[in-house]
Simulated scan of single mutants.
Amino acid sequence: MTRARKALIDLSSTSYYHLIARCVRRAFLCGEDKYTGKNFDHRRTWLVERMKLLSSVFAIDIAAYAIMSNHYHLVVKVNRQQALSWSDNEVIARWYKLYKGSPVIDRQLNGDTLSEAELLLVSELVERWRSRLYDIGWFMKNLNEFIAKEANKEDGCTGKYWEGRYKSQALLDEAALLNCMTYVDLNPIRAKMANNLEDSDFTSIQERIRHFKNSKSNAKKSNLNEAKCQAKQPKSLKPFGTRESENTLPFSLIDYLELVDWTGRHVHPKKKGYIPKNMPNILVSLSIEEATWLDRIQSFGSHYGNFAGSQTALRAHAAKNDMNWYKGVG
């Protein structure tokens, strides 16, 4: 049974979500269409550029992404407290980057004197916009509508482009977050569209690796402290850091890169390269067994429903929402 969106997005339980949107019928998001011979790879650029623009406007960070031929994956973090801390002027400035706004606020910005009723209306509008600027639904609406309009314009047609509403999964604990990010970053590997991480086009892991390598190269050329350069990460993506920091992902960048590479060598048997005998440190620190980890990567999409996490986390969240059971338990 389809659940109401408000029951799926619960910021009091988690700020991390896995989002998926798929094109309707045989509509192509990108890639080579074998039926028409057309190539739509340029639409991947549309999507990446648009989602990064929206992330810079909304209080929503991008932790991972993968753009496939007829669907895409996003792992995001909602920063509700950040949005609540914005001044009214900042909320207005951000909203106006995407929408026309309101005549009464235009008058206020022009320095006109407003009545008490008009000032109350301005306050109500600002708070409405503030709540929308950390709302996943509004983020996805803006992203998908923009891509649909551009694709339909290019195809010379009208009508539905996306297959219903987007799918969301709440990531209830660190293990689920790590599992989902790795699953997303390895999508091209699992689909046999690429043989290594650096060739996994339009993924966050490719972007992170390229940025990491450029940082190392720049450190050598300028004789800077290499550790400081390596610490620099793509500004448009949620950075890796430590569990203690609220503004970073709770893992180190090096540990994550090693984990995804190690996992990719297991889920893609034809891939050449050395497979380390020991599990990556990040799995050891989270007490995740090797077999369990690899099974979750292979079956993440089917193992969980709208919520992902340990059995304890799933049971607790189910009880909180007066549910007896969530997919993934047992």
Rank of each mutant, 00 (worst) to 15 (best):
Glu150Tyr: 12
Phe212Trp: 13
Phe146Gln: 07
Glu226Pro: 11
Lys141Asp: 02
Asn152Lys: 05
Lys149Cys: 09
Pro188Phe: 00
Asn187Arg: 02
Ala151Glu: 01
Ile205Cys: 09
Ile189Pro: 00
Glu163Pro: 05
Asp199Val: 07
Ser217Glu: 15
Leu237Val: 04
Cys229Trp: 14
Tyr183His: 03
Asp173Pro: 01
Ser200Leu: 01
Glu145Tyr: 08
Gln233Ser: 05
Asn223Arg: 14
Glu174Trp: 00
Leu178Gly: 11
Leu178Met: 07
Asp155Arg: 06
Gly159Asp: 09
Val126Phe: 06
Lys232Ser: 10
Ser215Leu: 11
Leu133Arg: 04
Arg128Leu: 10
Lys235Gln: 12
Lys216Cys: 14
Gln230Ser: 12
Phe202Glu: 01
Arg210Trp: 10
Cys229Tyr: 15
Ala148Phe: 08
Gly156Cys: 13
Asn144Thr: 12
Asn144Gln: 15
Lys238Leu: 13
Ala170Met: 07
Ser215Asn: 10
Lys238Asp: 08
Ala194Thr: 00
Leu237Thr: 07
Asn142Glu: 09
Asn196Leu: 05
Pro234Thr: 05
Phe139Trp: 02
Tyr183Thr: 01
Val126Ser: 06
Ile189Thr: 05
Gln169Lys: 14
Lys192Ser: 02
Met193Ala: 11
Phe202Asp: 05
Ile136Asp: 03
Ile209Ser: 06
Arg128Gly: 12
Arg132Ser: 13
Asn218Met: 13
Glu163Gln: 15
His211Met: 09
Ile205Gln: 10
Arg190Glu: 07
Asn196Glu: 08
Ala148Tyr: 03
Asn225Leu: 15
Leu178Lys: 04
Val184Asn: 11
Asn214Ser: 14
Gln230Phe: 13
Arg210Tyr: 12
Tyr161Gly: 10
Lys238Cys: 12
Ala194Glu: 02
Tyr161Cys: 12
Val126Gly: 02
Lys221Thr: 14
Ala170Gly: 07
Thr158Gly: 07
Leu186Cys: 06
Cys180Phe: 10
Thr203Met: 01
Ser236Thr: 08
Ala227Thr: 06
Ser168Asn: 04
Ala151Met: 06
Val184Tyr: 10
Glu127Val: 03
